[in-house]
Simulated scan of single mutants.
Amino acid sequence: MKAAVIGAGTWGTALAIVLAKNGHEVMLWSKFPAEIKELMETRRHRNLPGAVLPENITGETALRAVCEDCAVLVLAVPSIYVRETAREMSPYVSPGKIVVTVAKGIEEGSLLTMTELVEQEIPAARAAVLSGPTHAEEVSRLLPTTIVAGAREEQTARFVQDCFMNESFRVYINTDVKGVEIGAALKNVIALAAGMADGLGYGDNTKAALITRGIAEISRLGMKMGCRPETFAGLSGIGDLIVTCASMHSRNRRAGILIGEGRNYEEAMREVGQVVEGVYAAKAALELSERYEVSMPIVEKVNEILFAGKPVREAVRELMLRDRKEEGI
């Protein structure tokens, strides 16, 4: 089969390697000719040490070619570019073609998930999502990884499962698409908070508290939005939250550490050098909490730190001194 990966960042390149390992012909697209030229000449991505691009990956800069020639399209640009890229793809996507989004985010303003953006901009497509506790650095080296393919129709999810699954990349399916995407987007906000705690020099107790209470916040919101509670106990919920809060591969955690050490979010993003999705998801998460009248104190404090200049230590103190409560979601 021919497959296209639209976006030649670390995650897009890692997924191209997985597809190529499965024997598919893979077209890896970037709008930047210099990026494709370097990838094809070196067969390596500068931010994926140890990974080599198989020969059945070819580079492309013409969006029409990849959309028309390939049976499945993997949309791997950062969340803030998904709508724009999907709009550009739309004239070249034939009815029923599967478009798999792999960015984790919620669009600010519209509060749409990434598959909802695809459905809006490419109405001819069947939208799916691939999400879970997956660092590109490890996936590209074919280290054992598990992930979830989500789609409204089980048949679509199984198609994506068949495309990607192999002995190092185990794919589960889930038809709770919104739950998969809410967990994926909001865990980045909690990971920023976990990084901030690390930047302040706090320990494992603090990290465990943020992960546990963070998944409670995400689950509360998700269930109010009609998602299934078991989704948040799975790979795209608690699984993704754990790996993003705990690993230095996580750009959200790294940005949070810098903010905890005293940088503002703009300085932190420049130092990380890649898109920090949690910064963009934080405002959307707060808007969703207000729309659905769900208490999300960690999300509230992250927004105050990022956009209102609240000192991180003061935010932690306010979280700790909130009204006494029973445990629960």
Rank of each mutant, 00 (worst) to 15 (best):
G222Q: 02
A86I: 08
G96F: 13
L130Y: 07
V276P: 01
S110I: 05
E121L: 05
Q120N: 12
L186C: 04
M248W: 12
E267T: 08
R152C: 00
T10K: 02
R254A: 15
A216M: 03
K207E: 13
M223D: 03
Q120S: 14
E25V: 08
F307A: 13
P144Q: 12
K37F: 13
G226Q: 07
E121G: 04
H249Q: 15
L15M: 12
L258E: 10
P297T: 13
S289D: 01
P229S: 13
G260R: 06
A65F: 07
A125P: 03
I218A: 11
A86K: 02
E290H: 07
E318L: 10
K178T: 14
R263M: 15
K187R: 04
M223F: 08
A209P: 01
N22S: 06
R322F: 03
H135T: 11
I57H: 03
K21P: 00
E230A: 11
G234V: 03
R43N: 09
V302S: 10
G203S: 09
I242T: 11
V5Y: 12
T115F: 10
A193K: 01
V180L: 11
P229D: 13
K104G: 09
Q155F: 14
L192V: 09
E41M: 08
V180R: 05
G256Q: 03
R126Q: 10
A268M: 06
K283T: 07
K187S: 04
G214K: 02
L143I: 12
A255M: 10
E318M: 08
G222T: 01
T113N: 02
A149E: 03
C70N: 15
N56E: 06
G309A: 05
I305W: 03
R158D: 13
V316D: 05
L286K: 14
S168G: 00
A124S: 15
E261D: 10
R220I: 04
L15R: 01
G132D: 10
V299D: 00
S90G: 09
N188S: 12
T244W: 06
M196V: 08
A193Q: 08
A125R: 02
V272A: 01
V139R: 02
V66E: 06
G59D: 12
G201E: 12
V180M: 09
S295T: 05
M165L: 00
A4L: 12
A246L: 07
